[in-house]
Simulated scan of single mutants.
Amino acid sequence: MTVTTDNPATATAIRPFHIDIPDEKLDDLRRRIAATRWPSKELVADRSQGVQLTALHALCRYWLNEYDFGRVAERLNALPQFVTEIDGVDVHFVHVRSAHENALPLVMTHGWPGSVIEMLDTVGPLTDPTEHGGQPEDAFDLVLPSVPGYGFSAEPAEVGWDLFRTARAWAELMRRLGYTSYVAQGGDVGAGIADAMSRQAPEGLIGVHTNLLVPALNDPAALPGDTEQ
């Protein structure tokens, strides 16, 4: 991949990002897949001994002969992508501004094991709601960051990148983008980050939405009883 930088004056500058994976790297990946040393076939008819060998064979054949490695890169490159260094780590993010006035800034975080790819189908409906049956006031300016160590964000060189540190990084990202009022959303690990943001209450954050009950996962006693459920 390559990163195109217009003005790398400081490490904290927001730099345009473009995915460009050399063919030789893809060729090397295919060679390694083809050279897989397979284990013996499982002794049972179910998955109690792991993923069945026939399923793994089929998956590798798909990667070797059918999967289009450039398809997702083209889809991401069609959107505005950037990187910026936050707390010593280059953070990759997609940033799509709505054409509608007064769009609400929204930072959405993916889950584990995942990436911003899982949220690409939301870009159109959220940034251009009138083309999807919505109203102009439903529009968002959308920020989709890659969690450090995921996707095209850099891998941290030290331990400590927990939910709260990532939450602080997202607040800094929104500040750098010039947003003084915004909301956050997340699912799975992203829900944990959104929850951490709500607890830290950074300046500008006016609300969060999660589709995972993070406090209950951390404390099973916090779950409602059977009758309450």
Rank of each mutant, 00 (worst) to 15 (best):
M1D: 14
T4K: 00
T4Q: 13
D6I: 03
N7Q: 13
P8E: 14
T10W: 00
A11K: 09
T12S: 11
I14V: 08
H18V: 08
K25P: 07
D28C: 02
D28Q: 12
L29D: 04
I33A: 10
A35Y: 11
P39E: 04
K41Q: 12
V44G: 12
A45R: 13
D46A: 00
R47D: 11
S48D: 03
V51C: 08
Q52T: 06
L56G: 03
H57R: 05
H57T: 02
W63S: 03
L64D: 12
N65G: 14
E66N: 05
E66V: 13
Y67M: 12
D68L: 06
G70M: 11
R71Q: 15
E74T: 15
F82T: 03
E85L: 00
I86A: 01
G88R: 03
V91S: 02
V94W: 05
H100M: 01
E101K: 12
E101L: 01
N102H: 13
L104K: 00
P105Y: 08
V107C: 00
T109W: 10
H110A: 02
G114L: 08
V116N: 01
E118D: 07
M119H: 11
D121A: 06
D121H: 05
T122P: 00
V123N: 07
T127L: 02
T130D: 08
H132P: 02
Q135Y: 00
A139R: 00
F140R: 03
V147F: 10
P148G: 00
F152E: 02
S153F: 12
A154R: 00
A154S: 09
E155Q: 02
V159H: 07
R165Q: 04
T166A: 03
R168E: 15
L173F: 04
L173C: 04
R175I: 09
Y182H: 13
V183R: 10
G186R: 06
G187A: 11
D188C: 05
V189S: 13
G190H: 08
G192F: 12
I193T: 11
A194D: 10
S198Q: 08
R199P: 05
Q200C: 12
G204N: 13
I206D: 14
V208F: 11
V208G: 09
H209Q: 09
H209I: 01
L212W: 04
L212Q: 11
L213Y: 14
L213I: 14
P215Y: 02
D219T: 14
P220G: 14
A222T: 13
L223R: 15
L223Q: 15
T227D: 15
E228L: 10
E228Y: 13
